[in-house]
Design a protein around this nucleic acid. Sequence first.
DNA 1: TCATCATATCAGCAACTAATGATATATTAG
DNA 2: CTAATATATCATTAGTTGCTGATATGATGA
Lengths: 121, 121
Amino acid sequence: MLLDANSQKIELTAKLFRGFSDTSRLAILESLRQGAMTVGEIVAETKLTQSNVSNHLACLRDCGLVTAEQDGRFVYYALSDKRVERFLNLADELLREVARGVYECVHYEKLKRTVARKSKR
Amino acid sequence: MLLDANSQKIELTAKLFRGFSDTSRLAILESLRQGAMTVGEIVAETKLTQSNVSNHLACLRDCGLVTAEQDGRFVYYALSDKRVERFLNLADELLREVARGVYECVHYEKLKRTVARKSKR
DNA sequence: TCATCATATCAGCAACTAATGATATATTAG
DNA sequence: CTAATATATCATTAGTTGCTGATATGATGA
């Protein structure tokens, strides 16, 4: 990648989107749309493991997408900004338009599927 | 992942965000914000290789984020929907809030950097 | 039809990212 | 202080994704 101002911005934007482009992180953000929650509550809601949730929360917090507030031995997480919610809303809206395409888009997956399929563990 | 309706939606949303979460695809979309362009023009603007651009365009087209229109031996690509632009706008706006955090967020990278750094080719 | 230009496809490789399990830190209760 | 609870960290491993180079397809003009 080039190092000029524009590609720097692109890199940051990509990183921002990457924050939202993982199912676990999205599940967490989706939970937080209801309001602030402790890590344990998020774990219960998302059914993800505790360390996994904690890892993702650290990531989301560092990126400024959620805030953390300690209360005793609990830590309450919340969406950091109305814009985060608006962003999720707009994503929902956009998805309504392109859902079928996205669902069927297997551009890279398709390439892989033709190759010997690894065992599913 | 579970297979209920909600996690299906989350999976699709993640996939949608993934469409935007790559610097090459973002550079392409950024170029297209100026208006429709041929593949060659996009290659010139982004300085990416032709096959790389073509691969990403196929992906973006399949996902319904861009449209393709053939004109002679050229193919003009364009953003598919006003919403795509609004989405990019909102991302810019959100980034203005959280840019520093996103820039400094090296959650996973940091873990890797502590491990023997592979040669940069 | 043949040569050329524009774009698309694909296999192999390199790099990245996420999930897990073990362990560490921090807070409160007894 | 000690045990128990809540959360965080981190190394390893496995799976995913993007890039490249070679080649294929498709359109136009000579």
